[in-house]
Amino acid sequence: MFAEIEPVMEKYAGVPGSLITILQKTQEAYGYLAEDAIFYIAQRTGVPASKIYGVATFYTQFRLKPVGKYILMLCKGTACHVNGAAGIEEAVSEHLGIADGETTADGLFTLDVVACLGCCSLAPVMMVKGPAGEETHGALTKDRVRAIIDEIGAGEKSLKA
C-alpha cells in the first residue's frame, strides 16, 4: 500500500518542514488526499494526523475527495470577474450539472473555481488539468467553454470505443 509515494517518503519523511511537499506529492500520485493516506503519512513522519488534516484543509490546493479525470480550473480573478467569469461559471455548472468542487457522475470532470491563473489579459480564462498536462484557454464565451468541454467528452468516448 502507498508504494507510489515510497520514494517521496524516503526522501522527505525525516526532513523537518516537508509536510506540504509530502502532501503535494501524495495528491499528485492519487489525485486527492484520502483519509488512510493521511494516517499513513502520520505514521511515517511522526506528525499527528490531526495536524496533517489542519494543514491539508488550510491550503486550497489540497482535496480530501477524489477528483475527475479532468479538472476544470475556472479563474475568478479580478480581471476575469470584470470580464464576465460569473456567467462562464454558470454555463459550466449548467452544462455539466455540477457546482464548484463537485465531480460529474461519470468521473470525468471536476469544477474547481480558482482565485487567479495569472493570464489576466486573456480573461476570462480556464485551465484544464488532464492526464496529458495543463492547457489554458482564454477569451472564453459561454459557447466556447461548452465546446471545450464537449470536445474533451467526445475524445473520451472515442477512446472507449
Partner: peptide, 22 residues
C-alpha cells in the same frame, strides 16, 4: 511550491508555510 493561500504573501505566514505549517 506554495499550496494556495493568499495570506502566505505576508512574511511571517510565508515562513510558517515554508516550515510545513498552516
Amino acid at each position: 511550491a506554495g499550496a494556495g493561500a493568499f495570506v502566505c504573501g505576508e512574511e511571517t505566514a510565508l515562513i510558517a508555510s515554508l516550515e510545513g505549517e498552516r
